[in-house]
């Protein structure tokens, strides 16, 4: 098993005809992911063609779900329309919506998060690289890739990776694969201050997943989801966890690229997070170059 998605998960792409959405839909198809539908309002009835694949395009997510049985979606819709697209996915009964879009206004996400309360749809992101469950083929092909992560760096295996940063996720995955160690699922939860899935949500899933034997948790300055996850791990953790926190050298009060990466009012510092990791028995990677090595030493 794995978490969130498996190789047979049927995926639809919201915003499949935009250049960004189209490019990554193609890469996911090449990876072997079961992309079964695209959604672009006004283009229903057309097809998205790539390398012998013919993917039907629908006007609404509800139509796409009804006709293809898709259960997960990737949102590549521009920021002003992204909140609406996420809620449309939830309304259509998708079990997973992965929002890749960067730059959604915080107030839009506050409303989205409230509207998702009590619903069965899980939102991952926004402003995230997405989710990858590697497959068994060459360069991990045949897996499920929702989003923008490079599929080929993965390898099927037993380490779960969760991170707020895309490139640091790739860095960790690359370090693991280079050592011949595969991954169960890699989840980018995104760099925004209001997101659908927290570190803790993913950690709980990894702890419950029999195929995941160890976890790399990557955090960064801002907010307190790393501390929250660490506290839970201290009490309930059953598997080795190694972590890295980015931003120890970031000046306070400045937003470091990600909308959520900011130390404000003395809160959300790298030091506080590293201390929380240490207290919870999480292995601390001294540099971003040692994430895989730190975990493997614990296993």
């Amino acid at each position: 098993m794995s978490i969130l998605v498996q190789s047979n998960t049927k995926v639809l792409v919201q915003g499949i005809t935009g250049s960004f959405g189209a490019k990554h839909a193609q890469l996911s198809l090449d990876y072997g992911t079961r992309i079964v539908a695209g959604v672009t309002p006004g283009k229903g009835g057309q097809n998205f063609e790539h390398n012998g694949h013919t993917i039907p395009i629908f006007d609404t997510v509800a139509d796409a779900v009804r006709q293809t049985g898709a259960t997960a979606s990737a949102v590549f819709v521009p920021p002003p329309f992204a909140a609406d697209a996420i809620l449309e996915g939830a309304d259509a009964g998708l079990s997973l919506v992965v929002a890749i879009t960067e730059g959604i206004p915080v107030n839009d996400m506050i409303r989205v998060k409230r509207a998702l309360e009590g619903r069965s749809t899980r939102l991952v992101g926004p402003n995230c690289p997405g989710v990858v469950t590697p497959g068994e083929g060459k360069d991990s092909q045949g897996g499920c890739r929702i989003g923008i992560a490079p599929g080929y760096i993965h390898k099927k295996g037993h380490i779960g990776v969760v991170s707020r940063s895309g490139t640091l996720t790739y860095e960790a995955v690359f370090q693991l694969t280079a050592r011949g160690v595969g991954q169960s699922t890699c989840v980018g939860i995104g760099g925004d201050p209001v997101n659908g899935t927290s570190h803790l949500d993913v950690i709980r899933m990894f702890m419950a997943d029999p195929e995941t034997h160890g976890i790399i948790m990557i955090g960064e300055i801002g907010g307190s989801t790393e501390e929250e996850a660490a506290e839970w791990i201290a009490r309930n953790g059953t598997k080795p966890v190694a972590g890295f926190i980015a931003g120890a050298t970031a000046p306070p009060g400045r937003r470091m690229g990600h909308a959520g990466a900011i130390v404000s009012g003395g809160k959300g510092t790298a030091k506080a997070k590293i201390d929380a990791f240490r207290k919870a028995g999480i292995g601390i990677s001294p540099t971003p170059s040692d994430m895989a090595a730190t975990l493997l030493k614990m296993m």
Binding site: S163, S165, G166, T167, E220, I221, A246, A261, P288, S289
Partner: peptide
Amino acid sequence: GAGLAMATMDI
């Protein structure tokens, strides 16, 4: 990448 950029400063 923002995360990698922060991590590069750190390293």
